[in-house]
Write a protein that binds this DNA or RNA. Structure first.
Length: 111
DNA sequence: AGGTTGACAAAGG
DNA sequence: GCCTTTGCCAACC
């Protein structure tokens, strides 16, 4: 958090409720930067944070396999534990679990 | 100061 | 539906 930008990103991610996921692009737009920056901020997360980084996925609804082999698997398990259902391809239905930041909690879709 | 890489997004084939 | 190219911003060499 050496930069207010990162702090902004972390704050936005913290606002994501359990059982819900969001995309890098949405956070990036709210944080005032691009998706790449958000991804980098997640990678730079220090140990002992309160940021549910696992709830942040890409616009494709898939978890991004970071260089650290087990990370993606951990993320998937954490989301499943929160009630997020993955399809056979390891993808999440953003229309159902996608959290709309601007609305402060959406999900009204529900199938 | 310049070039490459990276947990991405959007557009095109 | 998938894969490829372009653009993006910040960090690392």
């Amino acid at each position: 958090m050496s930069s207010p930008l990162y702090n902004r990103i972390y704050t936005l991610v913290r606002k994501v409720p359990p059982g819900r996921v969001t995309t890098y692009g949405r956070i990036a737009r709210q944080a005032g930067c691009t998706a790449r920056t958000v991804g980098f901020a997640m990678a730079a997360l220090p140990a002992g944070h309160d940021v549910p980084w696992q709830r942040v996925i890409n616009s494709q609804g898939q978890v991004s396999p970071r260089r650290n082999g087990d990370g993606g698997l951990i993320q998937r398990l954490l989301l499943e534990a929160e009630g997020v259902r993955f399809d056979s391809r390891g993808r999440v239905n953003l229309l159902r679990y996608g959290w709309e930041l601007e609305n402060g909690g959406l999900g009204g879709d529900g199938r």
